[in-house]
């Protein structure tokens, strides 16, 4: 049996583990008051509603696909996932401008609140590669939210955006 002297590496690993544990416990203490207030609703983003088309149909896929828009919809407060929520998605893609009807499509969230819609590749337009998502609260139980997430790189083939909806 080889003895285990305290080497520099061993000391660093042990130190990092202790620091990590301290961060985790300290962190949870810090965030406890926020959790008590509940999950905050997602605010509408600037320019999010631009070229929105109310009532865009629910589709299996927008155009030829190849790019995935994903996200999760939850309820403000308790953060419960919301099923059957209609989310409209549109963007300037390889197949059309934002204003084109065929650039738009809607999908419904599953039991876990997750939505996933395949669409053509988003390309930079108006200076940024970005997508648009809408939850239209018209006649619905939650308030309207428009999102406009920006892709970190124009070459990305997925974009993710989460909704936390506020009861109307």
């Amino acid at each position: 049996m080889i003895p285990h002297p305290i080497t520099r590496r061993r000391l660093l690993v042990a130190g990092a583990a202790t620091a990590g544990a301290a961060l985790v416990t300290g962190g949870s203490g810090l965030f406890a008051p926020a959790r008590a207030q509940g999950v905050a609703p997602t605010p509408t983003m600037r320019g999010g509603s631009n070229n929105y088309r109310p009532g865009a149909p629910i589709v299996d896929r927008i155009g030829g696909g190849g790019f995935w828009m994903t996200g999760r919809v939850r309820r403000a407060g308790d953060g419960a996932p919301l099923q059957g929520v209609r989310i409209q998605i549109w963007a300037h893609t390889t197949e059309g401008h934002e204003r084109d009807p065929h650039s738009h499509g809607a999908t419904l969230t599953g039991a876990d609140g997750v939505f996933r819609l395949e669409m053509p590749q988003i390309v930079p337009a108006f200076g940024q590669p970005h997508g648009h998502l809408a939850y239209d609260g018209d006649g619905e139980p939650f308030q309207t939210v428009f999102l406009r997430p920006v892709m970190p790189r124009a070459s990305d083939t997925t974009l993710h955006a989460d909704f936390v909806l506020q009861p109307a």
């Binding site: 600037r46 320019g47 999010g48 070229n51 934002e98 337009a125 406009r148």
Partner: peptide
């Protein structure tokens, strides 16, 4: 894209 230009002119663009 009219709404994007209106946002820009009104300084409310993202």
């Amino acid at each position: 894209s009219p709404p994007d230009v209106i946002d820009a002119l009104l300084f409310t663009s993202p």
